[in-house]
Computed example of a mutant assay.
Amino acid sequence: MVSFDTTERVVAYGAGEVLVEAIKTARELGFEVAVVTAPRQAEAEIDGEAMVDLLRSQDVETVVTDDVNQSSQVNELVGRQTVGLSFGAAWIFDESVIDAHNGRLVNFHGSRLPQDRGGGGFSWRILRDDPLGYSQAHLVTPSIDTGNILLTDEYRFPESCTTPVEYAAYANEKEAEIVTELLEGIAGGREFETTSQPEYLSSYWPRLSTEEHGYIDWEWSLKEIVQFIRAFSDPYEGAKTFVNGIEVRLKQSESFRGDGTFHPFQTGILYRKDDQRGYVATPDGSLIVESVRDEDGEEILSDIAVGDRFYTPTERLRQARRTRVYFTPTGMQREEHDS
Rank of each mutant, 00 (worst) to 15 (best):
S255E: 13
R257H: 08
E211G: 13
P235T: 09
I225Y: 03
Y271V: 04
Q252H: 12
D275R: 11
I216R: 09
D234H: 14
L270I: 08
K240N: 01
T210F: 01
H263P: 05
I269Y: 00
Q252F: 12
D259P: 01
F228K: 10
P235M: 08
F242N: 03
G268P: 05
Y236C: 04
D274R: 06
F262W: 14
G258A: 05
S221M: 09
I229S: 09
S253A: 15
P264A: 11
G278K: 02
I216A: 14
H263W: 05
S255V: 00
K240V: 00
T282R: 01
T210C: 12
L208E: 08
R249G: 04
G278W: 08
A239Y: 11
Q252T: 06
V248S: 01
R230M: 05
Y279N: 07
Q276M: 03
E237Y: 01
R272E: 10
F256W: 15
Q252Y: 15
L222I: 08
Y215Q: 07
F265K: 12
K240P: 00
K223F: 07
V226R: 08
R257G: 15
P264L: 08
Q266R: 10
E247R: 07
A231G: 12
F265T: 03
I269L: 00
G214F: 08
L222D: 09
R277E: 15
W218C: 07
T210E: 15
I225N: 03
F228D: 10
F228I: 05
D275V: 11
F232Q: 04
D234Y: 12
P235C: 03
I225Q: 12
S209I: 03
K251G: 07
P264S: 06
F232S: 09
D217T: 11
D275P: 01
F242Q: 04
Q227H: 15
Q266P: 00
Y204P: 05
W220C: 06
Q252W: 14
Q276R: 14
P206L: 04
H213Y: 13
G278C: 04
Q227R: 15
F262R: 02
F262T: 04
R272K: 15
A281E: 04
I269M: 01
R257A: 07
F232D: 04
I216Q: 10
G258I: 06
F262V: 02
I269K: 02
Q266A: 14
A239P: 11
D259W: 03
W218A: 03
V248I: 14
R257W: 01
G260R: 08
F265M: 06
E224C: 02
E237H: 03
Q252E: 12
F256D: 09
E254F: 14
R272H: 08
V226T: 15
E254W: 13
G260T: 11
F265Q: 08
F232V: 02
E237I: 08
T261W: 00
T267N: 01
I269Q: 00
H263I: 04
L222S: 06
N244S: 13
T241H: 11
P264N: 07
V248N: 02
D274C: 06
E219L: 03
A231T: 07
R277T: 09
Y236K: 02
A231L: 06
N244Q: 11
S221W: 03
D217Y: 13
G258R: 01
T267Q: 04
G260P: 10
S233T: 06
E254K: 14
E211D: 15
K251T: 12
G268F: 12
W218Q: 05
G258N: 09
